[in-house]
Amino acid sequence: MDFKHDILPLKNIIFRTALRIILNREEAEDIVQDTLMKLWEKRNELDKVDNLEAFALTMARNLAIDRKEKGDNQLVSFDDQVHDRPDEGLGGTDSSLMHQETTSFIADIINALPEKQRTVLQLRDIEGKSYKEIANVLSISESDVKVTLFRARNEMKEKILQKKSLFL
């Protein structure tokens, strides 16, 4: 087991998943560090793990949920942080501004969902994971994953249609 080769490459998927739960970049980064550190400490036992990525994500999710519960009075929100990204403001045209606004509208809907729905949506629609993998990460059944995803996607649809009707 080599840290740089086997563990470090998991950093970004862990980061995005943790960020989706804790909704704060700095804390998500701390969680990535803690998770990678723990994996490294357990490197001798990892041979028995058949899906290292799912194992790492489960670990990160638990850490993120714990932290979220401890400091839920966080005022810095996910999209404040995410949309501080310099590359998003690069266009500077009206259309890119519009895009930024609507993108944050989607982010707002997702981030207002319950944690389980947020995480399932993140793993399926952003990370492109199978139901089986997601079930593994969350330690729930595949049908539970499907039901959760169904609720999340339909909440999004409803909000999108609501917004459309407001603008018409």
């Binding site: 980064e29 995410v82 982010a107």
Partner: peptide, 27 residues
Amino acid sequence: ADLFNYETGAKAETLGEDFDERMMAQI
């Protein structure tokens, strides 16, 4: 469009370049 484009864009979210350095120092 916004929904699916958000999904595409959100995958580009990554850690800063200095993360590896800090992580390796910790290791």
